[in-house]
Each structure stands twice: as structure tokens, then as C-alpha cells.
Design a binder for these strands. Structure first.
Lengths: 166, 166
DNA sequence: TTCGGGCATGCAAGATTATTGTGCCGGGGC
DNA sequence: GCCCCGGCACAATAATCTTGCATGCCCGAA
């Protein structure tokens, strides 16, 4: 796994990245205006973030309930046998399923937290069966169906700027 | 709450939205190429998605572990008193905290699922204390710290195109 | 202290890309 | 059959992005 040592970020980088996390549709001119830099300087920084893999991608976020009926659910999962191979297989299956939005391997009695997005309660149930019940290596799983989405996003808190260069 | 009746989507819409969910950085020309439409037609459709709130925003997704040390955790929460007011207050607090990535109100013994992003284990603990322990209306909460991120994103499965116009 | 290199910047030209106006075509309603 | 509406392609225009270049700053080395 490419554990790159993390490029150093100054105050402007943090400002920029926060703006981009919030709305990546802004123009370079606008961004530059907000951070006190010329558009071209901004552009070069952003290019660097991409090259460094700091910005992994740029996506459009759809409104779940505007797209059509949507059921979101969180599923807690515990595997039966914990072999490396079983974990790998499970992870692969989660990655392959488009209706799995997120999947984390966690500490404690549960092994995984999985966030599902389905188009109906019925489909949500079917998905659970297909992904978890049909797998005979899953000891137990529990589905927490969402009533309401209070907040959603992938925004990360950024580290305080390195004492580097102000 | 503005429960807009969902605009009808044809096959091209679904194709386009899927492309945009995957990578919103593509040019109109490229998008048009993939869906068999001219750039201007694509542009007009996208403008419509925005107007309809179908695309709620466009963001840059950062790589958590490239940005710096990051600890992700899922927290399950049960309130003590279930009054409307208490729920509203809790939701407000989640929305206000930048380190809360996602928050869902769910069915079952747990009331909420909260996804946290912190910069260290220490901070993660502090955050938990601040958000949940300090609140005397929280009966119980359980933190599931993530070892590993198998998958992440906000991609939604799109409904099959309406029988509308092919 | 002074010199030289690396690095990031602003500016401005040039290339791409997005936006908008126009006319055309096909389907549905009258 | 005719008209209206919606969506399309094309083209001109506008906006935005990209790149080359010269400059200034900070640093280490002499």
C-alpha cells in the first residue's frame, strides 16, 4: 500500500482544500480571490494535489430523495471465520456492489460497517439477503434503516497548517 | 420539507448522472460523446439537474490518509428522552460539527448512526466525549473505530429509466 | 556577508471549454 | 392536417483554464 508521507500543507493549502471540499465548481479566479492568490497559482496548487493523490476525485453529489425513492441503511456485520482470505473476499464483494456506498472494517464485536443505498425497502431487504444472508461465512448482521438523513458528505477535517511557511 | 415529485429521467439522464457521480471533471464534449449528445445538449441537461436540485453539489473528495493521519469511526447513539425538541437539538449539533461527516436517524434500538472523521485517536475520543458524553440526554453510545476503509463514496443507484421517451 | 539554486508567484498570451442564440425536427393535441 | 412545444445540433461568443516567462524570496554554501 502506497503510504505516501503526506505532503506539507501551508495555510493557503488548507483554505483551498476546504473550499474545494465544499464546492469544487468554483472558478480558479474565484478561488484565488478567496485565498489571495492568482488563478494560475491556484491552478498549480490544485494540479499538485491531484498528482499527490490528495484529491482523489471530483464528483457530483445527488440528492437521494430527489433522484427518486431511496432507502439508506447502515448494516453491521460480523464474519464467522476470520481468515485473511475470508476478509479479502468480503471486501471484494462490497467493492463490486454499486449499492454499497461505504464499507469500513472496524474494531470491536462487529467486523464491518456497511452503508447501503437502495431504491425501495423491498430492494433493501433483497440486497441484505443477497450480500449477507446468502454468505454462509457471516455469523450475524443487523440492519439499521435510516428514517432521515441529518447530514451527509465526505468532508475531512484538515490538519492545522504546518509551522512551515506562512 | 420540499418533497419535489422527482423529475422524470430518461435513459440518457441516467447515463449522464452515473458519469457525473463517478467523475464530474469530464468536459461536456466528452460526456456528450459517451451518451450520444452534443455538448450543448449535455450542458442544458446538467443545468436542469442543478435547477431541480437533483445534483445538490459538486465536491472534491480527499484521500483521508494522504491528507494526514486520519481516524474514521462510526458511532451508534441512543437518546434518553425522545422528545421532538431533543431530537432537533441533537440533529443541529451534528450538523454544526465539521468532524461529523454523516448522520442518519435510524429505526431500532439505536436512534442515530454518526460517522466521524478525526485527526487522531485521541481527538476521536475527545470528540466522542464532547458530542455524546457531555450531553446528558444521551442514554448510550458505542464507537466503532475503523481499521480500514474498504470503500467510500456517496454514489446512488439510479432508478431504471421511465418508460417515457427512448 | 554574499552568491547561486530551487521554488512559488503574477502576468499575459494562447488553447480549451462552457454558454447562449438560432433554426430545425418530431410528437402530441386540436 | 396543422400548430405548438420540447429538445436537438450548429455556430458564434464568452468564460475559463493552461502554459511560458521573468521576477522575487528564502535557503544553504562559500
Amino acid at each position: 500500500m502506497p503510504e505516501t508521507p503526506t505532503p506539507r500543507l501551508d495555510e493557503t493549502d488548507v483554505l483551498l482544500l476546504d473550499l474545494l471540499q465544499d464546492d469544487a465548481g468554483r472558478t480558479l479566479y474565484e478561488l484565488g480571490d478567496q485565498v489571495g492568490l492568482s488563478p494560475s497559482a491556484v491552478q498549480r496548487r490544485i494540479a499538485r494535489y491531484r498528482k499527490d493523490g490528495l484529491i482523489s476525485r471530483q464528483v457530483a453529489v445527488l440528492d437521494p430523495h430527489r433522484v427518486g425513492p431511496t432507502v439508506l441503511a447502515t448494516v453491521l456485520v460480523t464474519l464467522d471465520q476470520e481468515s485473511f482470505e475470508h476478509h479479502r473476499e468480503f471486501a471484494e464483494r462490497m467493492r463490486a456492489e454499486p449499492q454499497v456506498q461505504q464499507c469500513y472494517q472496524v474494531a470491536g464485536p462487529w467486523d464491518y460497517v456497511v452503508v447501503l443505498a437502495a431504491r425501495s425497502m423491498r430492494e433493501c431487504g433483497r440486497l441484505g439477503n443477497q450480500l449477507f444472508k446468502a454468505d454462509d461465512n457471516i455469523r450475524r448482521y443487523e440492519t439499521l434503516v435510516a428514517f432521515d438523513t441529518i447530514k451527509t458528505g465526505l468532508t475531512l477535517p484538515l490538519p492545522a497548517p504546518q509551522p512551515g511557511r506562512p
